[in-house]
Design a protein around this nucleic acid. Structure first.
Lengths: 328, 328
DNA sequence: ATGAAAGCGCTAACAA
DNA sequence: TTGTTAGCGCTTTCAT
């Protein structure tokens, strides 16, 4: 196997010093003729500067790290897509890790990034503060996406405006005449849950804690929670699912229990996914701008993020399809 | 910001030379006491060897590159998940790029990986051979996943057994009494298309080219193709969609045209996705082991892949749900 | 078994 | 403007 052409080869071929090559290639000053000679030689030899040498010298990889719970989930997938798009535009490589929402794994992955010399990371955090201590201590620039972590306030975040999104949804349901509205939440949905309660209260509907249930991040758990809700409280007429997995579970459970949507029960889901339109009836959703969240987070982290941990909130959109109707 | 602790710090703290530290940490020979001293010092200083130095020395990143058309697509997402899982088990970082199935982008991304010193890549290739020339020339170890590239035969591939999957599907449909079976294909589905034709022929059904249509990799294009098929040939009674995007389009188009599934038309899709169960009726599918494909491909590439470009074919599974019925 | 020393490819002072 | 040089942190001969 032929060994890679290095800066030295180019320097020799162009009859200049390596520093000059480096300068020319990174847009430094050089006489027009020198520049041309260098460029010609580089092109001739098909030279590609090795990031290895540069990284070592700079003591850091240029790239950005991306930590998400699960590539396979539509929401995180879209966030990742946004990050990749932004990084690509900036010519930066992205190292991706899946945490499974497990703080231990998250911790290990952060360690791996540190080891790789990554110094900027975008993450949908698991929720624990602990894994992020070593990161910030090591001087990592991190930006949270889609969620933030209680107790880690020096990290900026790009979020969906969940409060307003959930409020809109609940108002919509109440406006349709519903009074016994259930809520199905999951990991990392504290914001949404709070908004749900607050909106109900603000509208003069007393919060029935029995109508609030939670599932863990598996399909089975979400299904069990949804099914339990429907069975224990057959009087509920509407349900807000706080995420796409939970919405999926709600649709399935409703069907299994022969509940007609939206006749028997109105369904609304936080997050828009391709299958929302394929459902029968198509699902009404609160759509968060997942891809934008990723893109903006990547922009922020590349810009060096602001030292002050402010949060950017991106608006959600209520997309009315066919899964909500007037109270039965 | 405190500067990272280096191997030199550990060496000093342990009162040994850097070479010894390096040896101990990579499991080389050392006297028990020296080993202990080094380990203690390393732990004490919370030392993490920098991949930067190691990479430069070794002239390569340990990690693996992953190139897929679109993180957002369920199939590729699952492939990516498999790759990430395997890489994580091996402690290797993964640099991910989205090609959008565009050979130009693919080419650039390959260049980026080369520049980063990545020497192993798993890819769902766009289909063009050209982007891969520089890669193999540079000595990259590459393994294709889910697809292969005509003319690039020195690259091993991990694939779904598409022929047998499609055959099973077509046989199933024919067994149900269907004779006018349509096929909706897309980019990179040559294998499936061929299997479709062959199976029909083998079963004594003449292939009606008008019943074979193709969409590009966008939702709009897929929808147009599906819709066109249904409208031009209202006599067709069954359709095989070669991928999840196409299946989605078929479901939507059928609904739009008021075709009842499976009464008016039987639908079967290559690829299993969460929404297949949510559909009404739930979609019958040929499920490829997407995650396994990714995992196996990563295993192969980490093992250094075989120089001989053999293909591993993983079996698909026919999952009968409710979208296929007897000919009307 | 261990240490000294030579780089890996690159960039950034510093000189010229 | 340009070349020389000194490392970045690590692994790996080569002596000892």
């Amino acid at each position: 196997m032929r060994t890679r052409t290095t800066i030295k080869d180019v320097a020799e071929a162009a009859g200049v010093g390596v520093a000059t090559v480096s300068r020319v290639l990174s847009g430094g000053s050089a006489s027009p003729q020198t520049r041309e000679r260098v460029l010609a030689a580089a092109a001739q030899l098909d030279y590609r500067p090795s990031a290895l040498g540069r990284n070592l010298r700079r003591r850091s990889t240029g790239g950005i790290g991306l930590l998400i719970p699960d590539v396979t989930d539509s929401f995180y997938g879209r966030v990742a897509d946004g990050v990749l798009a932004c990084a690509r535009a900036a010519g930066e490589p992205v190292i991706v890790g899946a945490t499974g929402d497990d703080p231990e794994d998250e911790s290990e992955l952060i360690g791996m990034l540190l080891e790789q010399g990554v110094e900027r990371v975008v993450a949908v955090p698991s929720g624990e503060a602990e894994p992020w201590r070593p990161a910030t201590r090591a001087g990592l620039t991190v930006v949270f996406a889609g969620r933030r972590v209680a107790g880690v306030d020096d990290v900026p975040a790009v979020l969906a405006d969940e409060r307003s999104g959930v409020r809109t949804a609940v108002e919509y349901l109440i406006g349709l005449g519903h009074r016994r509205v259930a809520y199905l939440g999951g990991h990392g949905h504290g914001q949404r849950t709070a908004a749900f309660r607050d909106t109900l209260t603000a509208l003069g509907v007393t919060v029935d804690e029995e109508l609030i249930a939670f599932g863990r991040a598996t399909r089975d758990s979400a299904y069990a929670a949804a099914s339990g809700l429907f069975q224990h409280r057959p009087d509920l007429t509407a349900l807000v699912a706080a995420g796409n997995l939970l919405g999926e579970a709600a649709v399935l459970a409703a069907r299994e229990l022969d509940l007609r949507v939206p006749k028997d029960i109105s369904l609304i889901m936080f997050d828009d996914v391709p299958w929302a339109e394929l459902c029968a009836p198509p699902l009404t959703v609160i759509a968060p701008p997942a891809r934008d969240i990723g893109y903006r987070a990547a922009e922020l982290v590349l810009r060096g993020a602001s030292p002050r941990g402010r949060a950017v909130r991106l608006p959600t959109e209520l997309i009315v399809r066919g899964s909500c109707g007037p109270r039965r």
